[in-house]
Design a protein around this nucleic acid. Structure first.
Length: 506
RNA sequence: GGUCCGUUCGUCUAGUCGGCCUAGGACAUCAGGUUUUCAUCCUGAAGAUCAGGGGUUCGAAUCCCCUACGGACUACCA
């Protein structure tokens, strides 16, 4: 009897999806693929105060760019919808009320101000924070301390209330985490968390448990920040009578700052110069722009491969894996327990590896688009040849233009370092006589050009260094690049000679 | 402060239930080679007394305890 695997990624639309979130989604997706199960996207928008317009669309677009496809969710629907918690609003209250009836939860009428006062008072007498729990609830305003009549009166009068879980005293709650093993927590340190808010919405805790149950989720794979509240979730399953179908838990380690301590945040990206979001994001309120991997010139496959290896490894020395391979070898048991510091250098390496493997026609298509802003059009065949020459030299897709501009227009800027080191008083003469030599030559093959070049060197008793670097400089403006004769052959005789005669350094 | 989780080269990590680990790989770094350049690629070097201290054991990075450090959580946020 094997129940089909069903997992979910359940972000809140409170801003752009962070790469840690992308990784959580990825692991869920990989896990589902591997087990032939379903991957669900559920939007947890129970807090209207934190709702950010555009965030949900951003999340969906990000997953799409990454190639993480979901089987059920807000866009495609599915048999367990709706998949937006705000649209499931009415479903939660009955469960909360059922818990109250069963004595597993209670109504609480304390106002935020009153609770704040409690916290202040507590701070004065001890360093321990105030907690709404078995020790304090009996002196607060709730259905445990008020008479049934009074509770009914307040409820009927429409007084604001919340429903809190009633955490039992002196118990130990155990759970088995796939990544961390057995975790146990004493109930005395748990507090009576709010399950149902005064605005009629459930909190994460209730909504999460109810939806996971209703949607028949078998494995909850989420960030480590949820580990402390997981025992309370176990209690909820128990109280709701769902313990026998409770999903298995797997709490993922966090992504940490590359330097220093703490978890990776939006600010770190700006500070250290790399994106922390998959796509570019413009904050609708402040207008602040955060960079994205897509815009920075990353291939989604490289980005995903890199992310997959952060905190998990397959146990073999191979590092480059496509989606299919990842899905077949992924396992939660091999997820590292400790948080992983984000390594931007390695991300670059992955990107370079993937770009190098890209077929020339595909890159040519990208280069063609990169040419548009410069008002340049070129034949596809020509572009393919250019890409073939430069692709193992670039790290980002955005480098395409920088590394290929001289294939399309005469250089206007010249590498200063090369001028300083290689441009001697006799160099202009050498370039001029080489140009004269080339005048009568057929540019139809790189080998031909190379032969002529060496003959020229020999005839004038010159070393390669005296002519090659200056030649490259006047023709391309650069210090390095693909084979010089390949370049000359591609751009042709006319362009080559024009550049050899018309260069002008500033 | 409290609770939970964690701790192997600068970074990501390997190291099946203790012996094959004088701790392996990758990125980054450095040095050579290839390329007359740059990049790729190849070779090599350096880099971790396995956080520290106690145990258990013939034998521990691997098991147990303590300490230190780090992280998460501690909202009518998720």
């Amino acid at each position: 009897m094997t129940t089909p695997v069903r997992v979910r990624f359940a972000p809140s639309p409170t801003g752009p999806l962070h790469i840690g979130g992308v990784r959580t989604a990825l692991y869920n997706y990989l896990f589902a693929r591997q087990h032939g199960g379903q991957f669900i996207l559920r939007i947890e928008d129970t807090d209207q105060n934190r709702y950010v317009p555009g965030a949900e669309e951003y999340i969906i677009e990000s997953l799409d760019w990454c190639g993480i496809k979901f089987d059920e969710g807000v866009t495609g629907g599915g048999p367990y919808g709706p998949y937006r918690q705000s649209e499931r609003k009415e479903q939660y209250r009955p469960y909360a009320e059922q818990l109250v009836r069963d004595g597993k939860a209670y109504y609480a009428f304390d106002t935020p101000a009153e609770l704040e006062k409690e916290r202040e008072e507590q701070k004065k007498i001890s360093p321990d924070a105030f907690q709404y729990d078995s020790k304090t609830r009996l002196r607060l305003k709730n259905s445990l301390t008020l008479t049934a009549g009074e509770v009914k009166r307040r409820l009927d009068a429409g007084e604001p209330y919340v429903i809190r879980i009633c955490i039992p005293a002196d118990q130990v709650v155990k759970l088995t985490d796939i990544i961390r093993g057995d975790v146990s927590v004493h109930t005395n340190i748990l507090d009576d968390k709010v399950l149902f808010k005064s605005d009629g919405m459930p909190t994460y805790h209730l909504a999460n448990v109810v939806d996971d149950h209703l949607m028949k989720i078998t494995h909850v794979i989420r960030g480590e920040e949820w580990l402390p509240s997981a025992p309370m979730h176990v209690l909820l399953y128990r109280y709701l009578g769902w313990e026998d179908t409770m999903p298995q838990f797997a709490h993922l380690p966090l992504l940490l700052k590359p330097d220093g301590n703490g978890k990776l945040s939006k600010r770190d990206g700006d500070r250290l110069g790399f994106p922390v979001f998959p796509l570019k994001w413009t904050d609708p309120a402040s207008g602040e722009v955060s960079s994205g991997y897509r815009e920075a010139g990353y291939l989604p496959e490289a980005f995903i491969n890199f992310l997959a290896m952060l905190g998990w490894n397959p146990g073999v020395e191979q590092e480059l894996f496509n989606f299919g391979e990842l899905a077949s070898i992924f396992s939660l048991e091999r997820v590292h327990k400790a948080g992983a510091k984000f390594d931007f250098e390695k991300a670059k390496w992955f990107n370079q590896q993937y770009i190098k493997k890209l077929p020339d026609p595909f890159l040519a298509g990208l280069l063609s688009k990169a040419l548009v802003p410069h008002g340049i059009e070129a034949g596809h065949e020509y572009l393919e040849k250019v890409c073939g020459l430069i692709k193992e030299r670039i790290t980002f897709l955005n480098d395409l233009w920088d590394y290929s501009c001289y294939f399309f227009e005469d250089p206007r800027v010249f590498d200063q370092e090369t001028i300083r080191k290689r441009w001697k008083p006799e160099t202009p003469g050498i370039i001029a006589s080489l140009a004269a030599e080339l005048e009568a030559v057929d540019f139809s093959a790189p080998d031909l050009l190379e032969g002529i070049f060496h003959q020229f060197l020999e005839k004038n008793s010159l070393g390669t260094g005296a002519a090659m670097s200056p030649l490259r400089l006047v023709v391309t403006g650069k210090a390095g690049g693909p084979g010089m004769f390949e370049i000359m052959h591609l751009i042709g005789k006319e362009s080559t000679l024009r550049r050899m005669h018309g260069y002008r350094f500033e």
